[in-house]
Every structure is written in C-alpha cells, then in structure tokens.
Design a protein around this nucleic acid. Structure first.
Length: 602
RNA sequence: GCUGACAUAGCUCAGUUGGCUAGAGCAGUUGAUUUGUAAUCAACAGGCCCGGGGUUCAAAUCCUCGUGUCAGCACCA
C-alpha cells in the first residue's frame, strides 16, 4: 500500500510538500488513524468544493477545515442550497473522484495570490489571517484552492464519504459578519467504518431526550404555550421530585438553609446589581402601578436581601442559602433546544456568604459536592476557570484577586482545569463544570462563581472580631445547573433507562388475571410506604401485551403476580435488562426495592 | 437573531401535476376473552390539514405575514 503522506517532526506532511522540500519520515497510509483521516477529510472537503463549484459556478469559498466530527466547507453562492441538494453534490463528488485527478501543489507569493484572487472577497479575508510571504495552491482538475494542506496525492482515493448537514455560518464566526453556507461531511478509509459511523449517529438519535421525553411522558412543549417553556408531565414530575428530595438532604448535610426569593423584583434592584445594564436584554420586564419590575434571571439578588435581613457576625459565616430557583431568560429562538436550552428553568442555586479567608475551603467543598453527584451518575466532566468578560462590573484589581483565588483553590488541591478567557459572569470569574453527554457533546451544567462585586454594590457587611464592619464575599453556585438541562442530559445518558433511585416509576406490577388485582393493589400500597412508585397493568389486554407495554415504559423492575404468588405471598420478578426471572417473598421484594431506592445519597 | 428545511389525528407517518366524503399503523374507548412472561379478536371514536391574509371556479397542496419545530452559526445553565 502506498503512503498518502509522511510524518515529519511530528507534523503531517503531504507527498507534494515532502517532494518539494525533500522531507522524509514515517509513512502514513490510508486507514482510519487520526493522521490519515485528517488528510483524507481535508481532501474530501476540497473535493466537495470542486463539486459545488461545478454545480454553482458563482460559488466563492472561505475555509474548509477538518473538525472532530468530520469536515466542513464555508462558501457563498447566489443560489439557494438546501438539504435536498446534498445528494446532488455527493453525486458530483463521486463522478470527480472517479476521474482520479491528481492533487497538485504549487506556491506563489502573497502578492501574486492577492492578485489572483482579487475578485474573491472570501479568499482575501482568508489571506488577511495569513502572515507568511508565500502561500500554497492545491489544484485538482480545473479546480484550485488556496490551502496550506496537507492533502492526498489524488482524489481517486476518496470513496467513502457522506455529506451530513447544511446550514449557515457567520464569516469568521462573528455574528456581525455576513452569513455563508456551510456543508458538513464525514469520510472514512473504508465502507464499513462509514456505515458504523452512520449507525452510531442513528443510535445517538434514539437517545435524544426530546424523543424519549415524549415516549416516557416526562415533559412536553406546546406552540400555544410558547417557545422555550417546558411543561412537566406526571412521570417527569416524579423524576424531578426524586432528584429534588435527594438534593435537599445533600444540601442540609452541608449546612445550607432553604430560602425562597420573589419571582419579580423592582428594577431599582437590578440597577444596583448591574443586571439592568449588563444582562437586561436577556430579562423580561413588566410594570405594576407604574413601577418597573424585572422577572429574575438569577436568584442572587433575592438571597442578598435575605442576608440583609439581620445583622451578621463573623461567627455566622459562612452562611449558605439554597433555592430551587425558577428563572426566566430571553434566549434567542434559534438557541432553544428541548430541555437543554429553555426560557424558563429551575436552578439548584445557592449562595455562600463568607470571609475572604474562607474562600478556598468553600470552593473545595463545592467542588467535592460536584464530584459526589457527577460520579454517582457516572458522568465524565471537566472544569474550566472562566475569566473577566467584555461586559463586566468591578475593577481589574478585584477581578485579578478573585480569579487568582479560584485558581489557587484548584491548584492547591491538584484539581485539573482549563482556562476559558473572557467566559466569566459579569460580576465575577467562575469555575464551570462541563459534562460530556452520551454522544460526546459538552454541556455546561454546574458553575461556581466568585463574587466581590455584588457585596460591594449592595454594601453587604458583617461584624468582625473587633466589631468592625467587613464586606463578605459571595460564592454563587449551582451543581446540576438547572433541572431542565440536567434531566435532559440524564435522559440521554441512560437512554431513558433511569436507575431505580430516580426512575419515575420503580415497579410495574402485572396481575395475570382480574382475580389478582387486589394483591397487586396491596403491593402497590406497600411500595408507596417505602417511597417507591408503581403502576398496575391490569388493562383488558393479553398478559403478553401487558408485559410488553410495561417493558416499553423502561421501568426498572417488573413483577408478575398470579395464583401462585397470591397464595404464597410472593412475587415473580422479571429483570428488564437481563430478562431473567426469579421469585422473591413479598418481604424480600419490598426490602430489595427499599434498598435500591435509597442506595444513593449525595 | 442569522442561513436553510419543515408543520396533516394523542404519537409515527401517507395524501400524485391544486379537483369528489383527508387515509394508515400505534395509542384511546367499548364489547368478547381471564390469559404464567414482549403485540387475542371485533366494533367505535378521533382532524379549524399550525394561525391570519391572499391567488383560484376550486387550496392540506400555490403566494404572503406570523407562530412553532429541526440542523448549524452566533449566544448561554
């Protein structure tokens, strides 16, 4: 098998360049290794551009890189291209690939390149980002493109690819710029891998929380209610209630007090906090008797008012308030996405008021809390320290001190983190917890924010040891982030097969005939006593049908009761996953459920 | 918000170039059946074809403005 590129000084060098510069190195062959796919997909992007250019001669091209999920190319044409056109483009790509054009490379000076592409504003925009004196051009058949490579020696090597998505994308990723058309695609070295990839995508789709949420009656959205306002159905309500109650205990153990602030507060307060100025466009406002109110987008102001309700001493600190706070935010319509992104959601929010000296231990305690919960759900997550954003309140010194405090807490405890420059909240830097979901997407859930600014703006204080007035520090934190997003992620993570301790229904009871209904009801009542929900499947259907229906609800445990069970006070258990069947006495069964329902504590 | 696609029964979807009373499966209701581990049989019911407005002899179908959904961009818990 011939090489498609070489590895030189740890860099992928295509054969064209290797020949030009006389480089040698380890050969890269056409397979599904990361290096090979990098080259293959990059060239597939060019092949796509070639096909687009032939179908839409006015097309101009911006950049066409490889990304985690394949490759894309951004381009501009006067024609309207939709999803239906992808097939046509694929077909054209295949016909070019069959011609097995060699991919040739030549270099020209930057000035020559600017002259060559003088009518192509997109290429000129690309060149603005290049500092080199010379640029390379890759050519296949009639088509050529400014590109730094690396590329395959010939497009004839490209066979197994698929165009997956089409959409718009802003030039340079900036919403102030014009919008280009972007087509995403994927390519592999062999047919099987492409097929596997497509299967994997289809499997991922089956886990979509919007689909499962509908099937399991967890939640719904309705056009007449409004975009981004979720409606929680009974099954979803039960799941949520379980999470809430677990979390309530976890907070109490850690010294948090439950509180509740109002849903709307006067705009004057949002002006003091800085939300009016910095977050106003995401807020909803209304008037009551000529006084303007803002619906809360965050819970901090309410908690500040609770702090202010009494004089505080250093002996009281840290004070920790928590609330399942319902917040409203005006999100762009295009951003809304199932439960992942909504306009009304409930945060598992808390605010810790503490002394400067207590910051580190408090941060560590919260990070530990986060870890406890994430590991219970077997989530991978990472932490990002986010620094001062463009829109912010407070002096640079305060930002510097607080950002450093966050980093110190992490460093001292050897906790790994990445930096997100400019990603902080407007009132302070934060540590974001990002969960990786079932199909590899990252979601920001938990967040820990350090805030010197709001205490100053609201002139919060406590009495110090010498009876002097000292300003406390606020730590804003949420662990799940919001129940909505977190339950969405959980749903996809478990593909709807929730573990017993949060499942909407713990047990499905299937009586064999009507004569067994009484025993089923008796079991159901006893289950309620041990905090387990059950459902009795005694509809006028065949036994098989009712078992099938119960299985399809994804309930963790199925019990069948007939004459034998009624007589012997037992249950026949059917494990949904393994399809194993076994019998337990009623007593053993209740004990088993009780154990499983209570096995988790954060 | 931007680019593109889409919206028909509770759910999943048919519905031809505009043309008769808009269909199916599942779910639901009723009846028969009383079942021992993944679909018993039958009947019935269910629709402002997303909402305004327009074109036309005629609109689920074409145009237009909204609303909502999907993919991505940008923004974010």
């Amino acid at each position: 098998m011939n090489a498609i590129a070489i590895k030189h000084n740890d860099e992928i060098i295509d054969l064209q360049t290797a020949k030009e510069l006389g480089f040698e190195g380890e050969q890269i062959h056409l397979d599904n290794s990361a290096d090979s796919l990098e080259v293959l997909r990059h060239s597939t992007a060019h092949l796509m551009a070639q096909a687009i250019k032939s179908l839409y001669p006015d097309a101009k091209f911006y950049v066409g890189p490889t990304v985690k999920e394949g490759f894309y190319y951004d381009f501009k044409t006067e024609s309207e291209i939709g999803e239906g056109d992808l097939k046509k483009i694929e077909k054209q790509m295949l016909s070019f690939a069959k011609k097995k054009y060699e991919i040739e490379k030549y270099t020209i000076s930057m000035d020559e390149a600017k002259e060559k592409f003088k009518d192509d504003h997109l290429k000129l925009a690309v060149m603005e980002r290049i500092t080199d004196d010379r640029v390379s051009i890759y050519k296949q058949g009639e088509f050529e493109d400014l590109c730094r490579g690396p590329h395959l020696p010939s497009i004839g090597l490209i066979r197994y690819f698929k165009l997956t998505k089409i959409s718009g994308a802003y030039l340079g990723g900036d919403s102030k710029n014009e919008m280009l058309t972007r087509i995403y695609g994927i390519a592999f070295a062999d047919k099987e891998s492409l097929k596997d990839h497509m299967t994997m995508l289809a499997e991922a789709e089956k886990r979509d929380h919007r689909k499962i949420g509908n099937e399991m009656n967890l939640f719904t959205f309705r056009e007449e209610v409004g975009a981004g306002f979720p409606i929680w159905l009974p099954a979803g309500g039960r799941l949520r209630a379980r999470l809430e109650s677990l979390l309530y205990k976890a907070h109490r153990k850690r010294g948090y007090e439950p509180v509740r602030g109002p849903e709307m507060l006067r705009s004057d307060l949002w002006k003091i906090s800085g939300h009016y100025e910095n977050y106003g466009e995401n807020m909803y406002f209304t008037k009551i008797d000529d006084v303007e109110f803002g619906v809360k987008p965050m819970n901090c102001v309410g908690h500040i008012k609770i702090y202010e309700d009494e004089l505080r001493s250093y002996r009281d600190l840290p004070i920790k308030y928590f609330e399942y706070g319902v917040v409203h935010r005006h999100e762009f319509t295009g951003a809304l996405h199932g439960l992942f992104r909504v306009r009304e959601f409930t945060q598992d929010d808390a605010h810790i008021f503490c002394t400067t000296e207590q910051i580190e231990e408090q941060i560590i305690e919260v990070v530990d809390f986060v870890d406890k919960i994430m590991s219970t759900f077997e989530f991978d997550y990472k932490m990002m320290v986010s620094t001062k954003p463009e829109k912010a309140v407070g002096s640079d010194e305060v930002w510097e001190v607080s950002t450093q405090a966050l980093k110190n807490a992490m460093d001292k405890n050897n906790l790994p983190y990445e930096i997100d420059e400019g990603g902080g909240a407007f009132y302070g830097p934060k540590i974001d917890i990002k969960i990786t979901d079932a199909i590899g997407r990252e979601w920001q859930c938990g967040t820990i924010q350090l805030d010197f600014n709001l205490p100053e703006r609201f002139e919060l204080e406590y009495n110090g040891e010498n009876n002097d007035k000292i300003q406390p520090v606020m730590i804003h934190r949420a662990i799940l982030g919001s129940f909505e997003r977190f339950i969405g992620i959980l749903t996809e993570h478990y593909a709807g097969e929730f573990p017993m301790f949060i499942a909407p229904t713990q047990v499905a009871i299937v009586p064999i005939a009507d004569t067994h209904n009484a025993y089923a009801k008796e079991l159901s009542d006893k289950l309620i006593d041990i905090n387990a929900d059950s459902e009795i499947y005694n509809k006028n259907d065949s036994l098989n049908k009712r078992i099938r229906t119960a299985e399809k609800t994804r309930v963790p445990m199925l019990v069948i009761v007939g004459d034998e069970e009624v007589e012997g006070k037992t249950v026949a258990i059917r494990d949904r996953r393994t399809r194993e069947q076994y019998n337990l006495s009623e007593e053993e069964f209740l004990k088993l459920i009780q154990t499983k329902v209570n096995e988790v504590n954060f």
